[in-house]
Design a protein around this nucleic acid. Structure first.
Length: 273
DNA sequence: CTTCGTTCCTGGAAGC
DNA sequence: TGCTTCCAGGAACGAA
């Protein structure tokens, strides 16, 4: 599932293929993926737009066209943006084709079709999930002074708090489990019962796992691939995610599984308290 | 306001 | 072997 490091890797690999290219035709094969505006207007407005740059904010990618026109893409679970040579056959699960100037086209593919796309004017406040994103890991806004008061106000599980994109932008199930393991905190602990020291450790752990994920080009657990169709290398560095029933890499004890905040969670009952 | 459950979807794994 | 059931989860949404 694409989280911050995976989306960052898509941005890096996509940019050399598409920045400076102009969209000539848009073929939307699954209109419900277009959240705003209608699929018809979406396709029409993109014609002859030149891709000036690409940015990432949280798990969103933003293609900038100039004149305050932006394409927001959220990959959700299995969405992918692929640059494919026009001579090659189209990719599997192709849902949207952006015909570009040059030798390659841009494809949006999606197995489970949860991905969402938006074409917006200005850096609009109209897309709630995008406009309300909290600070990012590795930014100087994610501080103890920011996070501690938020935790103090919430009796819900800490894992749910750090998965909330309004609190921290970019964490998903994989990096949340990994950060909680590194910080030595059980995912089900009520956020308001964490000590200041624990929250400090958690912020450091979040920054660490995200930086490592980026360095390793993302985590490919099932379907994630970058714009070149390559997988990430980070899965071999995971301590807990997807390892329920296996031995803890630190203490050797069998890892536990539990539903927390509606998500499957894996943790070590000995290393995490 | 917060918190929690439901919903969307498909492929692969697990179960019978 | 082959069919059925379950599970994966980001985030919007509605209910309590």
């Amino acid at each position: 599932m694409p989280e911050l490091p995976e989306v960052e890797q898509v941005k890096k690999t996509l940019a050399p293929h598409v920045v400076g290219k102009t969209i000539k035709v848009v073929d939307v094969r699954l209109p419900r993926l277009i959240q705003y505006p209608s699929a018809e207007i979406f396709a029409q407005r993109l014609v002859d737009q030149k891709i000036e740059s690409i940015e990432r904010k949280g798990k969103y990618l933003r293609l900038n066209f100039g004149q305050n026109l932006y394409l927001l893409v959220h990959l959700r679970m299995t969405g992918a943006l692929l640059a494919v040579n026009k001579a090659e056959e189209e990719p599997a699960y192709a849902k949207i084709k952006f015909e570009l100037t040059g030798d390659e086209d841009l494809w949006f593919t999606d197995i489970r079709t949860f991905g969402t796309l938006y074409l917006i004017d200005n850096e609009d406040k109209s897309i709630e999930g995008y406009a309300s994103l909290g600070p990012e890991p590795l930014s100087n806004e994610l501080t103890i002074d920011y996070l501690e008061p938020i935790c103090k106000k919430k009796s819900a599980a800490i894992k749910g708090v750090i998965l909330d994109q309004k609190v921290i932008a970019g964490l998903g199930n994989i990096y949340a489990d990994e950060a909680l393991f590194l910080a030595g905190i059980l995912p089900q602990r009520p956020a308001n019962l964490l000590s200041k020291e624990e929250i400090v450790k958690l912020i450091k752990a979040i920054n660490h796992v995200i930086a490592q994920g980026i360095k390793n080009h993302g985590t490919t657990f099932r379907n994630y691939q970058d714009a070149d169709g390559n997988k990430g290398d980070n899965v071999k560095y995971l301590f807990v995610y997807g390892r329920k029933g296996e031995k803890c890499k630190v203490c050797g004890q069998e890892l536990c599984g539990l539903k927390v905040a509606g998500r499957s969670s894996t943790y070590c009952a000995k290393c995490q308290r």
